[in-house]
Computed example of a mutant assay.
Amino acid sequence: MSPSPSIPAGGATPTIRVAHVIHSLGAGGAEHVLVELADVAGAAGLEIVVIGLSPVDEPVHAATLRAKGVTVLQLELARWDPRAILHVATALRRHRIDVVHTHLKHADLVGSIAGRALGRPVVSTLHLIEDAPVGRMATLKRRLGVWGRRLATTTIAVSSAQASWYRELAGRADTVVLPNGVAAPGTLGAEDRATVRRELGAGEGKVLAVTASLMRPEKGHALLLDAVERIPADAGIVFALAGDGPLRAELEARVAATAALRDRVRFLGYRDDVPALLAAADLVVHPSLADALPTTLMHALGVGTPVVATRVGGIADIVTPDTGVLAEPEPAALADAVVALAGDRARRTEMGAAGRLRFERRFSSAVWSAGLRAIYEDALPAR
């Protein structure tokens, strides 16, 4: 029997207790989503418990969530260990959970079975648009994830493109589109902005273009460098690349060996001040080859910096013609879009203002948490 949400005295909105089940709590986009949610859950009448299934070398998000007052349970079980189902079910009972919310394939399977066994509604968020798996094991894992989500009451896609992909993959038409949200970025004063720009070599008369993402093949850094090579040196554009990842050494070697790139491309490594970098930029360039809903572009809208991005995945759900430019994922198109926007300051100013408005209406964490609350209420039995 499913418990009723805790109803406070005085007719206030009842609190819904939600267990978020995820494969682990190391660094990663899906894991960071829970950190964003922790800051706004209370205002939406949500109390969250986070269950990490498997160990990870640096569980950075577990520490962050605990610091925010969130109850975090780390099961420390090997990936796909069937005992996780019993442990999760025990935690759901102990913490009197109303709704189970799962993230990523492993947790989708474990959380869905445990939740349904106890009569709790299950919500699953998709975080990726996956290519066809290679090999039998990868195929089996994807099938298990799809099967687990079939037990869910609701499956959330974070973009319309992701929803279309999943409907075709799973043969289900009941996927709900709700983009994740992020906290409103802080403002950057004129003096701080000037300091950041000087540090990046974007002095007077230069246009600063920032890219912030993990350096993995699908993020398109090689495409970006191909585009930069096509941009005339007298365009006066400095490209700053924030992020780390397996391709960083290869990309740095290419830049160091190429005269057309050496003086215009900066590698910043991992940064914990990405919103400030985006606010200091004249434009944000996102050359991804596949992306469900990149958080960087939400932050770009929030700080009022226009975007040049590739027309792939869910990017078009974020970047509209009044907030940025979408280009086909090929070097000439990307280069032309960057040059055109870099040379049009008035257009950049208009796009920045439109971006801030779009952020508040569509991608703020408050809008997102309210949307989650509505989905949970629909999934719960009548009160």
Results as ranks from 00 to 15, higher is better:
Ser2Cys: 08
Ser2Met: 10
Pro3Gln: 01
Ser6Met: 08
Gly10Gln: 08
Pro14Phe: 04
Pro14Gln: 10
His23Glu: 15
Ser24Asp: 15
Ser24Gln: 14
Ala30Thr: 06
Glu31Cys: 07
Glu31Met: 08
Val33Ser: 04
Glu36Ser: 11
Ala38Gln: 14
Ala41Met: 07
Ala43Val: 15
Glu47Met: 06
Val50Cys: 02
Leu53Thr: 02
Val56Ser: 08
Asp57Met: 06
Val60Asp: 09
Ala67Tyr: 03
Val70Arg: 03
Leu77Ala: 13
Ala84Leu: 03
Val88Met: 10
Arg96Trp: 05
Ile97Glu: 01
His101Thr: 04
Thr102Ile: 00
Thr102His: 01
Thr102Leu: 04
Asp108Glu: 12
Val110Gly: 07
Val110Gln: 04
Val110Thr: 05
Gly111Gln: 07
Ile113Gly: 00
Ala117His: 11
Leu118Pro: 00
Gly119Val: 11
Val123Arg: 12
Glu130Tyr: 11
Asp131Trp: 12
Met137Trp: 15
Ala138Cys: 14
Leu140Arg: 13
Arg143Cys: 13
Leu144Gln: 10
Gly145Leu: 05
Arg149Trp: 09
Trp165Ile: 04
Tyr166Asn: 05
Gly171Trp: 10
Arg172Asp: 10
Leu178Pro: 10
Pro179Thr: 03
Ala183His: 12
Val196Asp: 10
Val207Pro: 00
Met215Ile: 07
Lys219Gly: 13
Asp226Asn: 13
Asp226Met: 14
Val228Ser: 05
Pro232Tyr: 13
Ala235Cys: 15
Ile237Met: 09
Ala240Glu: 03
Leu241Trp: 01
Gly243Glu: 03
Asp244Phe: 11
Pro246Gly: 07
Arg254Met: 09
Val255Leu: 12
Val255Ser: 09
Ala256Ser: 12
Thr258Val: 06
Asp263Cys: 05
Gly269Val: 11
Asp272Ile: 08
Asp273Leu: 04
Leu278Asn: 00
Leu278Arg: 02
Asp282Phe: 01
Asp282His: 07
Asp282Lys: 04
Leu283Asn: 09
Val284Ile: 03
Val285Arg: 00
His286Thr: 08
Pro287Trp: 02
Thr296Phe: 00
Met298Asn: 08
His299Trp: 14
Ala300Glu: 00
Pro306Gly: 02
Arg311His: 15
Arg311Pro: 06
Val312Gln: 09
Val312Lys: 00
Ile315Met: 13
Thr320Arg: 15
Pro321Glu: 12
Gly324Ala: 07
Val325Glu: 10
Leu326Cys: 11
Val338Ser: 03
Arg348Asp: 00
Arg348Pro: 02
Glu350Asn: 08
Ala353Gln: 15
Arg356Trp: 05
Phe359Val: 13
Phe359Arg: 01
Ser365Met: 09
Glu377Met: 14
Glu377Pro: 10
